[in-house]
Computed example of a mutant assay.
Amino acid sequence: MKEVKHSPLSNLPLWKQWKEEGSTEAKKSLIEQYIPLVDFVSNRLAIGLPKNISRDDLSSYGIMGLIDAIDKFDYTRGLQFETYASWRIRGAVIDGLRQGDWVPRSVREKAKKIEDAYQKLEQKYLRSVTDAEISEYLQVSEGDFQQMVNDIAITSVCSIDDPIKEEEAETRLSLLVDETAKNPDYKVNEVYLKDTLAKAIDKLTEKERTVVSLFYFEELSLSEIAEVMSLSPSRISQLHSKAILRLRGSLGRFKGQLFQN
């Protein structure tokens, strides 16, 4: 489904009633107004998850995230609620899933090994490495490597509350910037961030770049992308997983450059 768009001021009377008068009826109305955001985010995250993960569970987690967003949102700052709420909903869904231990430790270990392999080999060769090179580095057959990628497809989502590196406290949420606030470092970091992302995306294969573009910018489902690219949904899922692992490895390598200040 398409994301429901609202004008930033379309629900201003409700926001005032809730924030300034504490009207529970106004809060209930806001929840009803923005509940389509929960469906949108939940449906996006459901792609590639195991079949035993209930859509109702995703929606329940998402609703809690929406309520949290409504409680914490400051309507006086001129920000768009939909963007803020989408991050909160996504984080709540992923955190809810992780509390249920939905991904085995062994799968997460595989993801970390492949991510590290991409990081080290692409830093060494300064180019996009092949499946054969990754397989050799991991000391597994190419068939086993492809199976590993399939196994970790469900870990390609992340919470904004996750630490950027396991041994550090800084989270993705801490890096979200309020563009209306005056921050002298923002423009500098923005330039580095764009440069780093561009370099990371350049290292993706052509098919991986296409999948990332169609999934995150055109908002197509995996099955729709499969139809566009004349590939199977499982192959699209695999390409998506490889792209995410490559990007994580590249961004991790440039972290010191991006956030040294």
Rank of each mutant, 00 (worst) to 15 (best):
S54Q: 10
A200P: 01
G143A: 07
V188M: 14
R127N: 01
K182W: 08
D131L: 13
L66E: 01
C158S: 13
E208D: 01
K113N: 14
S241A: 15
T196S: 11
R209D: 01
S141V: 08
T24W: 12
S128M: 05
N11K: 10
T196M: 06
L245M: 06
F81G: 00
Q238E: 15
D144W: 08
V177G: 02
I94R: 02
S232G: 14
V107H: 05
G143V: 10
L49H: 10
W15A: 00
L121I: 06
K120V: 14
A243T: 00
G91H: 00
Y186A: 15
V4F: 04
E168S: 14
T130K: 12
S23W: 00
S221C: 07
V107W: 03
T155W: 06
S23G: 07
M64C: 03
K2E: 11
L197V: 03
Q260N: 07
N52W: 15
R108Q: 04
V103G: 03
S232V: 13
W102F: 14
Q238H: 12
N52H: 14
G256R: 12
Y34V: 05
L197T: 00
L173H: 10
R44T: 14
A117T: 13
D74V: 00
L97V: 10
R88F: 12
I53P: 05
E166R: 15
V177M: 09
P104N: 07
L176S: 06
N43Q: 12
E109C: 03
D185A: 11
E208F: 03
V228G: 04
A181R: 15
L222D: 08
C158K: 12
S60Q: 09
S7L: 15
V211H: 00
K5A: 09
S135F: 13
Y34A: 06
P13N: 12
I70L: 02
T205K: 05
N52V: 14
A117Y: 01
G100H: 05
G252E: 01
R172E: 03
S42M: 07
E142L: 10
E142Q: 07
D185L: 15
I70V: 02
G62C: 04
D144C: 07
F81H: 03
E218K: 10
G22C: 04
Y137L: 09
V191H: 14
Y137N: 14
E82A: 05
E170P: 00
F145K: 05
T205L: 04
L9I: 09
T205I: 02
L12K: 00
M148H: 13
K51H: 14
L30E: 01
E133G: 03
V129M: 06
I164A: 09
S230T: 12
V129A: 09
V191Q: 15
R55A: 12
K207C: 04
G100W: 00
D195N: 13
L204Q: 01
F40I: 09
T205H: 05
W102G: 03
S223M: 05
Q80W: 09
Y34N: 02
I164H: 04
N43W: 08
P184C: 04
F81E: 02
E142A: 09
D161R: 10
V177N: 05
R55P: 11
F40G: 10
S237M: 13
E190T: 11
A26W: 01
